[in-house]
Design a protein around this nucleic acid. Structure first.
Lengths: 210, 210
DNA sequence: GTCTATAATCAGATAGAC
DNA sequence: GTCTATCTGATTATAGAC
């Protein structure tokens, strides 16, 4: 395996667990068993390394997401559950791409939102605008009564649910195991979150009474 | 104002924006206009300072939360919307406690969950167990069909929604302003999130079809 | 491309004068 | 309690030999 990939793999694992700020290049190169200077040789800087780690996943994921979201859009009257379920398969197939790919990617997503003051949000919206556009279209088709403002907020609530859950998923899965003797996999976690976010987005406008 | 409080105030503001890892003691003391050595004199270490910042809010908030949650529990058949709405008033009253108190506190909560690898979760569950217990009781009374496992997951989804939304609230409020010319306040954000989380927690067990 | 060595900077913490 | 000065160790990044 090339030095570049060894660095990417080690960086990904460490970033997911300890965050971008919390991981030093020394930890990365030592876990990757390469020389410290290799990071700057291959990537130029730590910031570029972070981008490279994220791009590797997004380049794999984006075409698949665009495909399934377009398919949902082509239906006459898609349901919100269908929209959110569409994410499951592309996300889970990241596990074939790399070991723990799904949870690593979602954790990185969470880290990027909170660690680096919006840098990742900028990166995603400028580099992968289609995914976001298709998603908004799909939700709009499933729930046309939702105004643009309400859609904006509810999608961010949803992003929060996913990203936060996944960025603390390791701890949560541990607690679930010790408290309920329940050996939850990332796949079933995704299954559990879908009804939650679908119901949240589908909530009646202007105050639910549930 | 005492040196100790000047440090607490500055630390709080910086921690909320840049996270615990991302804020140095030098930044804190310089913004507080006190000497660098004062932090270690008054608090002993950076970790203790973090605890002190969080405790100041929790000691203010915990009794109020316990009170309103007990009130909800005393009702015959509370609704989930009532349970979550109960949080609004104590949280918003943090704005009287300190400028931007509500959003600062919620951002700190979010930081603590992702920055420091579970340290804050440990801190809250061991130092303020009553709040959590009363909350779980209230939700159980409003939705008794929910099993302990499902409750566990849905409450963490809810925590994610709140915490993530608030930790990126500054950016989100900016976007909302420029995109929709909508001047949203933290209070109306809380109002908007309540139907979302109430619907999510209330989602039918075993797969919603919405 | 890979290495050693080191520069330049910044971190948290502390000793000791006042 | 507050200050200056400094220690110790870690960080990112780079220069230059091989």
């Amino acid at each position: 395996m090339s030095t570049k990939n060894k660095i990417l793999d080690a960086a990904e694992d460490l970033f997911a667990v300890k965050g971008f700020n919390g991981t030093s290049l020394r930890e990365i190169t030592s876990q990757a068993e390469v020389n410290l200077a290799a990071v700057n040789y291959h990537f130029g800087s730590k910031k570029e390394l972070i981008k490279a780690v994220m791009s590797r996943y997004m380049n794999e994921l984006a075409p698949n997401l665009e495909k399934v979201l377009l398919e949902v859009c082509e239906q006459d009257k898609p349901t919100l559950t269908q929209v959110f379920s569409a994410f499951a398969e592309p996300l889970l197939s990241l596990n074939d791409f790399r070991e723990n790919g799904t949870s690593n990617f979602l954790q990185l997503l969470g880290r990027g939102y909170t660690d680096s003051q919006g840098f990742l949000r900028w990166f995603l919206t400028t580099q992968y605008p289609n995914v976001i556009q298709y998603f908004v279209d799909a939700v709009h088709k499933a729930y046309p009564e939702l105004s643009a403002e309400e859609m904006f907020w509810r999608l961010h609530f949803t992003m929060g649910t996913i990203v936060f859950t996944m960025s603390s998923s390791e701890a949560l899965l541990d607690i679930a195991k010790s408290d309920f003797n329940q050996d939850v996999e990332i796949a079933s976690l995704i299954e559990q979150v879908i009804p939650y976010i679908a119901a949240g987005v589908a909530a009646p406008v202007g105050g639910a009474r549930t």
